[in-house]
C-alpha cells in the first residue's frame, strides 16, 4: 500500500508542472502562436523566482510563513515568464518573425542568461534554495489512502496549479474573451472581420502562456528538483508540448496526458525505493527512454489532429485581409 501511495504522490508531483505548462502551450497555440519557447520560459521564470527566494531566505523574510513565500515566488516566476514570453510575441506578432527560430533562440537565451548570472554572483552553475521548510504540507493524518495521496506531503503549488488549470480552462471556453482568442487561432481574418483585435488576442494568449510556463517552471524546481534551480528543466517544456499535441489541444486531453507522462517520468527516479521495481533491476536509462518512446508511439496512433488550431504559426497581417 505504501508503494501505491508513493507512486501516486510522485505521479502527481511530476504531472503538475507538465499539466500547467501544457496548458500554457494550449493558450499560445489557441491564439495562433507556436510557443516552442516553453522550456526557456520555465527556466527564466523559475530562475527569477528562485533568486527571490534565495535572497528572501538570506534576509530572513517570511520565516514564519514559508507557504506565503512559496506563493509569492510562484507569482514572481509567472510574471517573469510572461515578460520573457513578450520576446516571442513581439517578434512573432509585430515583426512576423519565424516563430520556430525565435522560440528556439529563447530556449537558448534563458539557460545562457542563467549560467552567466549564477556563475558571476554565486560562483556555481546552479542556484540552491534553502530546503529547510521543504514546503510540503501534512494537512491530514488519516489512514484513508486517497486523503493521504492528496494531502500528505503535498505541495501548495499542486493546489494552486489545479485551481489555475480549472479556472483558465473554463475561461478559455466559456468567456467572451476566451472564445475570441480561440477564433484568432482558427481563422484570424474572420475574427478580425467581426471586430476582434487579432494582435491583442495573440499578445494576450502568449503572455498567459508565458505566465503559466513560469509558474510551471518554479513548481518544477521546487518540487521535482527539490529546490535546486539549474540551467535546464530536463526537457519538461518539450514534453509538455508533446502532451499538448497528445491531448489534442484540449484541456481535458492534456490532463490525461499529464497524468500518464507524470507516471512514466516518476518511475525511473523512484525505482530504488519501490521493492518490486528494485527486484526487476532495470537500468535507469530504460526508464528514462520509455516516456519519450511512448510519446512517439502515441503521436503515431493519435495523429488525427482535429484539435489543432488551423492558423497556428501563421503570422497575421491586417492589410492582407
Amino acid at each position: 500500500m505504501s508503494n501505491f501511495i508513493l507512486i501516486c504522490q510522485k505521479t502527481i508531483i511530476y504531472a503538475i508542472p507538465l499539466l500547467i505548462v501544457a496548458l500554457a502551450g494550449v493558450f499560445a497555440e489557441r491564439s495562433g502562436i507556436i510557443n516552442l519557447a516553453l522550456e526557456g520560459e520555465m527556466i527564466f521564470g523559475a530562475f527569477v523566482g528562485a533568486l527571490f527566494v534565495y535572497y528572501a531566505q538570506a534576509g530572513g523574510w517570511f520565516l514564519e510563513n514559508q507557504q506565503l513565500l512559496f506563493i509569492i515566488a510562484l507569482l514572481i516566476s509567472g510574471i517573469f515568464g510572461a515578460l520573457f514570453s513578450l520576446l516571442l510575441s513581439f517578434g512573432a506578432i509585430k515583426f512576423k518573425a519565424d516563430q520556430t527560430i525565435v522560440g528556439t533562440a529563447l530556449n537558448m537565451i534563458a539557460p545562457a542568461a542563467f549560467l552567466t548570472i549564477t556563475l558571476a554572483f554565486f560562483n556555481q552553475e546552479k542556484l540552491v534554495m534553502n530546503p529547510m521548510p521543504l514546503y510540503s504540507l501534512n494537512l491530514i493524518t488519516s489512514d484513508n489512502p486517497i486523503l493521504q495521496i492528496l494531502f500528505n506531503k503535498a505541495y501548495i503549488s499542486t493546489f494552486i496549479c489545479i485551481i489555475l488549470y480549472v479556472l483558465l480552462s473554463i475561461w478559455l471556453y466559456k468567456s467572451k474573451v476566451g472564445t475570441h482568442m480561440r477564433a484568432c487561432g482558427e481563422h484570424p481574418q474572420a475574427a478580425s472581420s467581426v471586430g476582434i483585435n487579432v494582435y491583442a488576442m495573440r499578445y494576450l494568449g502568449t503572455t498567459i502562456s508565458g505566465f503559466l510556463a513560469g509558474v510551471g517552471g518554479y513548481t518544477y524546481i521546487a518540487t521535482v528538483a527539490a529546490g535546486t534551480a539549474e540551467s535546464s528543466v530536463g526537457g519538461m517544456g518539450f514534453l509538455a508540448l508533446a502532451i499538448m499535441i497528445f491531448g489534442n489541444w484540449d484541456p481535458k486531453g492534456i490532463a490525461m496526458g499529464s497524468l500518464l507522462f507524470g507516471f512514466l517520468k516518476c518511475i525511473g527516479p523512484i525505482a530504488n525505493q519501490v521493492e518490486f521495481l528494485k527486484k526487476l533491476n532495470i537500468d535507469i536509462y530504460v526508464y528514462n527512454i520509455i516516456p519519450y518512446l511512448i510519446v512517439i508511439v502515441v503521436l503515431i496512433l493519435f495523429r488525427k489532429k482535429s484539435g489543432c488550431p488551423k492558423a497556428e504559426g501563421q503570422p497575421y497581417d491586417q492589410s492582407q485581409r
Binding site: G91, A97, I101, A105, M108, I109, A112, A120
Partner: peptide, 21 residues
C-alpha cells in the same frame, strides 16, 4: 565567464528570426 559568449550567440539566433524578414 564564458557563458556571456553563449548568451551572445543565442541573441544572434533570436535576431536571425527577424533578419530573414
Amino acid at each position: 565567464n564564458r557563458y556571456v559568449a553563449d548568451f551572445i550567440v543565442s541573441v544572434i539566433i533570436y535576431m536571425a528570426g527577424f533578419t530573414r524578414i
